[in-house]
């Protein structure tokens, strides 16, 4: 396994991105080091599976390595990386045909989860949502994106996104009500 070293500890990210675009592997390693945490967290929220999330996050950075020369503005790296990560997740869903039956599956899961909602943590609660709903929720709450931005990113109508987020929020509130009660008791 490769030993990585922090070559650019105090450099601005735009400069490191520019270096990585020229094929500088040390700069690329530095970008991975700086951004890995947010991408891995995003994938964990999306997939709810740590092993899968690690693999997908690695795939995201491999895509970055392959496509970074196409990035025109180094300052746009952050948004570009986020878009790439979502694209990797959507590709994974399409490859596994998860989007097609997602709604039906989620409804079934919800029926089972209704009785066991106590103690569910966030990832478990997210797992009870259908993939499109979960992705909308993650983008809204984890990434702080607006509904319009999510609609653009997912190429879906704004109304659908709003409906997904509303439905997902209600579902999560329901699943996490026990957690909320517990927290209130602690306070």
């Amino acid at each position: 396994m490769h030993k990585t070293q922090d070559y650019y500890p105090n450099c601005p990210e735009a400069m490191i991105v520019s270096l990585a675009r020229t094929g500088d592997r040390s700069a690329f390693a530095d970008l991975v080091r700086r951004r890995q945490s947010s991408i891995r967290n995003l994938m964990r929220r999306c997939s709810g599976d740590i092993t899968l999330a690690e693999d997908l996050a690695q795939q995201v950075f491999i895509q970055v390595w392959l496509k970074i020369h196409t990035l025109k503005q180094a300052s746009a790296f952050s948004a570009w990386l986020k878009r790439l990560a979502i694209s990797v997740w959507l590709q994974y869903l399409r490859k596994n045909d998860a989007l097609r039956d997602a709604d039906a599956l989620a409804e079934t899961e919800l029926a089972h989860n209704d009785t066991t909602s106590e103690g569910m943590d966030l990832d478990q609660a997210l797992a009870a949502l259908s993939n499109p709903v979960r992705l909308c929720i993650v983008l809204a709450y984890h990434e702080g994106m607006s509904h319009g931005e999510i609609a653009d990113l997912m190429d879906m109508p704004l109304g659908t996104i709003k409906s997904h987020i509303k439905r997902g929020t209600e579902r999560l509130q329901q699943c996490l009500s026990a957690y909320q009660d517990h927290k209130e008791k602690l306070q």
Partner: peptide
């Protein structure tokens, strides 16, 4: 839920895969 995850092993794996 946001965790500050350790970078070293992950970065090493990504670099190995790109290699």
């Amino acid at each position: 839920a946001q965790q500050d995850l350790s970078a070293e092993a992950f970065t090493a794996r990504v670099m190995t895969r790109t290699q």
